Every structure is written in structure tokens, then in C-alpha cells.
Amino acid sequence: MSRARAVWQRVPAPVVDIVLVAVAAVDAWLIMWEHTRLGVALAALGCAALAFRRRFPLGVFLLTLPIALMQDVAVAVLVSLFTLAERSRDRRLLAGCVALSAIASSTPWPLAEVDRTMTVVFFVYGLATAAAPVLFGQLVQAQRDLARRLVEIEEAREHERALHAQAVLARERAQLAREMHDVVSHQVSLIAVRAGALQVATQDMDAKEAAGTIRSLSVTTLDELRTMVTLLRASGGHATELTPQPTLADLHKLVESSGTHVELSGELPPSVGTPAQRAVYRTVQESLTNVRKHAPGATARVELWQDGDDVGVTVTNTAPTRPSLPLPGSQQGLVGLRERADILRGTLDSGPTAEGGYRVRLRVPLSAD
């Protein structure tokens, strides 16, 4: 049933109208009692009016009503009643049209002596006949309304599911923000305080310098943690101002606070896009962090360069001069950098050097966005 309905719905409306006009005309010509000029003219007018039944359903019904005077059951009248019932919600109007159709079909034509008994019988028969397309049209209307209502309900449910997912995500972000603020920030703050105390108390210049570096890095880490907490609490909204992301202008400060002897060379044009600047900064940051963790005593060289429409950075470190301590790590730093480079349609290469060091090289388009 649904397949037949789908096929019928794919038929263009003008084709359906032409077919109905033709069927109604053949029906009127074959079953009409007398083919008088007036009768043929009225029948032709009523059949032709079916082409406009969608725009003027009531008017078309009134134009087809004379055909009911000239034959018992007229296709044109039934089609016009169905269209009117499908598009109208006025039950009184529909009841009146059914009564008019029954009266027209039970009235003898041409007018002659009336047999009351047969007229009543024909009237009841006409009521039943006219009520059928009206009930069917109302059924189609109710089915269409139900389908529309089901679509609205499904859209409302989808919207409710999206709101629920957003609420769950917001709660998870808020919980994560509290954990970061209460636990991680607290621990980093203690590190900064202890490093500051050691910097003041110690007389060893190397220890004093190391303590100062630890304190500086702890303060920077606290700033980044505050940014992340703010981002998590924002939950995707626009009401919270976020700390600006680092750019090339922050590279010198990053190198100076790295705790490693780093040589910075080269420069990039001012037209480098902001996403590319962040990618360069994060690459240098992750590379210098890896140098501190895995190559103690090594020196590093950060080289900014431009090659045509591409820009990039190369971070190279020498071999370590002393064994590295077993520090915890996620092993995801370089993976994240590669993903960032892929998003910007760039590349990231990394690997050991022939001298025992390590090299990380990032290339991204100049106008990466």
C-alpha cells in the first residue's frame, strides 16, 4: 500500500488533473440521461473545472453540481467532493455539500412529476454516495496531519536529545574544570612556592638558577591551566572571555624560560596566519619539553624559515650529556603535533640525527586557516 502511494505521489499533478478531466468527461458522456446542448455545456464546464480543483475546491464543486442532476453517480462530483474534504476543515460546509450533492442526484431531470417514495430512496442513496469521498478525503487529511505531527515530534525529540547531550557535556566539563582547579593547580602552585623558597635560600648559583627556572615554568603552567579551566567552564558558549592563544611574538619568552640553552634564528613574515603561528609555537614548546625530559644537558637550535608559500620551524637538539631521569609522559605530544599539522594541510617530520640528537621539522602553508 505504501509503495503504491509513493508511486502515485511521484506522478506530476498536471498529469493527474488531465487524467481526471478525461475520465469525468467520458463518464458524463456515457451515463448522461439526455445530451441536450445545455446539459452538454454544463457537463463540459464541470469536467474542465476539475483542472482547478486544488486552488478553488468549493467553486469547482459548485460547477460540477449540475452534472449530478443529469446522472445518478457523477465522477466529477465525487472528485470535487474528495478534494474539498481533503483541503477543508469546516465540517458544516462539508455536510452542506454532501446534502446538496444528494439533493441534486435525487432531483428528476428534466423536472417532471415527483415520486416522493423514489425521491427519498434516491436521496438516501445520494447521501451515502456523496459521504464516501468526503470521509475518504477527511481520512487523507488526518493521515497527512498525523505524518506532519510525527515529524514535529521526532524533531522535538532530536532537539531534546541534543540538549541532554549538551547538558551532560557541560557537567563533565565543569567537573573536569573543578578537578584541574582543585588538584592540578594546587600541586603546581606548591611546586612554584617550593622553587621560590629554594631560590632564595640556596647559595649554589646552579641550584638558584634551576630553582628560578622551575618557578618560572610553574607560573606559566598555572596560567595555561587557568586558560583551560576557563575554556572548560565556558562549555562552548560565548559569554566567557578566553585568554589569547600564543603566537610568534611569544616565542622569545618561551625560549628564555625553557631551562635549556636554546639558539633562536630566522624569522617569519608578518602575514603568517594565526593557526600557523600557534602550530609553530606548540611545536617549539613540545620539542623543548622533550629536550628537557629526554636529553639532559643537550643544547637546542630553533630555526624559523620560509620556503615559497610554506613556512615552518626546525628544532634540533644535540645528544644528551647525562642520563635522563624516568619522567612520566603520555607519548602523545608528537602525535598531537602531527594531527595539528594535518588539519592545516601541513607536515611534521621527526627523528634522530646522525650525531645522536633529535630533530623535529614542521611545514605548514603560509596562509593556513
Score class of each variant (00 low, 15 high):
248 L>A: 03
61 F>H: 04
98 V>S: 11
304 L>D: 01
118 M>R: 14
239 A>S: 15
320 P>V: 09
42 L>E: 12
263 E>W: 04
81 L>F: 13
192 A>G: 15
139 L>H: 14
162 A>I: 07
214 I>C: 09
50 L>D: 03
156 A>M: 11
62 L>F: 15
340 R>S: 12
312 G>A: 08
353 T>S: 09
233 R>F: 00
76 A>I: 06
100 L>C: 14
212 G>P: 01
266 G>L: 04
355 E>Y: 00
236 G>I: 12
240 T>Q: 11
306 Q>C: 04
105 S>R: 03
15 V>A: 14
354 A>Q: 13
343 I>N: 07
285 Q>H: 12
68 A>E: 02
174 A>P: 00
56 F>T: 10
60 V>N: 03
341 A>P: 07
362 L>C: 02
229 V>W: 03
39 G>R: 05
186 H>L: 11
10 R>A: 15
116 R>T: 07
84 L>E: 04
41 A>C: 02
198 L>D: 01
21 V>M: 04
316 T>K: 04
253 K>E: 14
18 I>R: 13
311 V>L: 03
35 H>A: 15
1 M>H: 12
152 E>R: 15
19 V>E: 02
15 V>I: 09
12 P>G: 02
246 P>G: 04
26 V>K: 01
335 V>D: 09
17 D>K: 10
278 R>T: 11
342 D>P: 00
171 R>T: 09
152 E>I: 08
190 L>F: 03
146 L>M: 11
164 H>C: 00
340 R>Q: 15
167 A>P: 01
182 D>P: 05
235 S>C: 15
37 R>H: 08
130 A>V: 05
52 F>N: 05
208 K>W: 03
49 A>C: 08
109 W>M: 12
